[in-house]
């Protein structure tokens, strides 16, 4: 277990983690265009905006690294926010029960995704597509197109408030603390036996099964975590941006993009959770950059598409090249390539 600082830096510098370079470049450009963005205040605002996607990316990372997909998270975020607004309806005392209910709901959706995928052997892209249809249908059925009710102030605190009067940065957003706690938790989780099994399952689930791993349980837990974190993202985004019927739409693809930008391989078995978080930051930084450059909103999807393809192609080709050179020099491939979080 290389927990040393040098181990971490060498991993960041390895081209496996192109995302850190990309993130630095984008931030450099943003700072150059708008020095004001480097102010602590603006950075904290950026963190608040990016936090929901980071949580979603961590959840999606668990699922993707186990070799599956979770397309339901966007609609789950939407459903959670809309239902919370409906139930709370401005009533402060309802905040805590509703939040608990939301987490329970997220866990149930994740469990259903996981169990249908593992026990009924439905491909996860279809399972979670089905859950997505069901949740979107539920949102629109409940709201009739326009959401009703409103969130309480206490509910919105997590997404928009923070610890005030902190020297130097002014306000320390709750969102940042939540992301840090979840991120550290995720890193430790990936070092735990469960995390190692998850990677093994994603790499080769047959081999993992023969080695005694309970594949269905490990994968179901990953889906459940994704549902749980999507709930967290829902609370943050509801707090930050408020309630609309469109909340969460398309976020599943953005989250998958973020994870893949972080060098996590679709199909499972390799990738680092910190890089997935950096991928989410990169996507948000990219959106900020587009704002700075006042790129017309209609061109953004095209730029986003180009950058994703370029980044993933670079990583894939680089990986193939390194795999070749490693096999030539060492009889055992992959020791630099292996994702041991």
């Amino acid at each position: 277990m290389r927990t040393t600082v040098s181990g971490i830096t060498s991993r960041i510098l390895s081209s496996n983690a192109t995302v850190f370079v990309l993130l630095a470049v984008i931030f450099a450009v943003v700072f150059a265009l708008n020095p004001g963005f480097a102010e602590p205040m603006s950075l904290m605002a950026f963190v608040k905006k990016a936090a929901p996607l980071i949580l979603l990316a961590i959840g999606q990372y668990f699922v993707i690294v186990s070799g599956e997909f979770d397309l339901s998270v966007g609609s789950l975020v939407g459903a959670q926010v809309v239902i919370a607004a409906l139930l709370i309806d401005g009533n402060e005392s309802a905040t805590l029960p509703v939040i608990l209910l939301m987490f329970a709901g997220g866990i149930v959706v994740g469990l259903v995704n996981g169990l249908v995928t593992t026990l009924l052997k439905v491909p996860s892209i279809i399972t979670t597509l089905g859950t997505m249809l069901v949740l979107y249908g539920a949102i629109r059925w409940l709201t009739g197109g326009a959401p009703t009710g409103s969130l309480s102030t206490a509910f919105r605190a997590a997404g928009r408030q923070g610890v005030d009067d902190v020297p130097l940065i002014g306000q320390l957003p709750w969102a940042l603390l939540i992301v840090l706690v979840v991120g550290v938790g995720a890193v430790f989780l990936m070092r735990s036996p469960w995390g190692r099994t998850l990677i093994a399952v994603g790499d080769n689930d047959q081999a993992a099964r023969f080695a005694g791993a309970r594949v269905w349980w490990v994968k179901t837990a990953a889906f459940t975590l994704s549902g749980f974190l999507a709930t967290g993202a829902g609370i943050l985004i509801g707090g930050y941006a408020g309630v609309t019927a469109q909340v969460g739409e398309g976020m599943e693809f953005t989250a998958i993009t973020a994870v893949v930008l972080g060098g996590v391989v679709l199909g499972g078995g390799r990738g680092w959770v910190v890089a997935a978080m950096a991928g989410a930051l990169t996507v948000e930084a990219l959106f900020t950059l587009f704002n700075q450059l006042s790129v017309p909103s209609t061109v953004r999807p095209a730029a986003q598409g180009l950058i994703i393809i370029a980044a993933v192609a670079y990583a894939a080709i680089d990986r193939a090249r390194r795999a070749r050179t490693v096999t030539e020099t060492h009889p055992t491939p992959r020791h630099t390539d292996v994702a041991t979080p």
Partner: peptide
């Protein structure tokens, strides 16, 4: 370019 089909076609679609 060996980009996973999911990402490749999603990206081309976005373009």
């Amino acid at each position: 370019l060996k980009v996973n089909a999911f990402i490749a076609t999603l990206g081309v679609g976005l373009i």
